[in-house]
Nucleic acid binder design. Sequence first.
DNA 1: CTACAAGCTCAACTTAACTTGAGGTCAAGC
DNA 2: GCTTGACCTCAAGTTAAGTTGAGCTTGTAG
Lengths: 156, 156
Amino acid sequence: MAPALELTVGQVAARSGVAVSALHFYEARGLIRCHRTSGNQRRYGRDVLRRVAIIKVAQEVGISLAEIGEALASLPEGRTPTRDDWNLLSTAWRDGLDHKIAQLKKLRDGLTDCIGCGCMSIDKCPLRNKEDRLAREGTGARRLVLPSSRAREEGA
Amino acid sequence: MAPALELTVGQVAARSGVAVSALHFYEARGLIRCHRTSGNQRRYGRDVLRRVAIIKVAQEVGISLAEIGEALASLPEGRTPTRDDWNLLSTAWRDGLDHKIAQLKKLRDGLTDCIGCGCMSIDKCPLRNKEDRLAREGTGARRLVLPSSRAREEGA
DNA sequence: CTACAAGCTCAACTTAACTTGAGGTCAAGC
DNA sequence: GCTTGACCTCAAGTTAAGTTGAGCTTGTAG
């Protein structure tokens, strides 16, 4: 059935499961790109589907569009990404993803620990103590950030 | 050093690392609770620290305050949570957390797979195909939801 | 060759999760 | 007993991530 090389915005929306308006939005934020027909309509290369898939999965685990955009920026806009291109993105995210996985496990197992300790002696709770320690290191919100963002903040 | 049994809002903010305004906000949303002094000032029990710790960690992995609130609602407000109370919360979240961990791993390993396949044949990419399949099952946004929310949506 | 679904732009609206500010109260130290 | 920093309430502002709607253009199927 030889699929078309180019996809319309509606086709991308249908295949990726995100709304057309969201695709426009992602484009405005520089996360995806397309070229235009002579009549000014968007046409997407097939790699946009993978980009959108990554955007969606990343969002589901609490990564902001800004951070996703940063990571996706390492991919070439003009051509289909090569193995090395994806490799770059992957290594840029690996640490952050591992960290998040650890956070989730800590939450899950922390709750288990809470059951174990019965939360009768709150000071011994690993979950609480971790946060308490963080609090002593400074004030204000400390959010989990991906390596690239962390580096940016430290540099500032 | 016999720590005080009750904490002021400022002390909770300092120890938990969240702003006073955020604590007020969580209270308005029913996520935490306190009693008042004769002068109308908030006083918190020590278990609020664990609640806030859970709120923070859960938020970091993309769980909404509404969902966190639902889970925390299973904890007793009037007394220090017992082993069974935490157990209830834990089992309510276990599936959702496992699912999120799987999503994160898929993202991490999916990127690895992309490197493996070089993304030359996009149709074989496990990440993209998963999304594409989802898209065929209906339109609109499909977000990862915790079991309780999922049940609520299905009931509506 | 024309109807009409699909696209386009741009501005305004929405929800979540807070923060900021104004205007006033409480309480601990000197 | 007063001053000063911590609290209080309530309203309005902010940022992220989209959605919705109005008004206009494109392109394809009959």
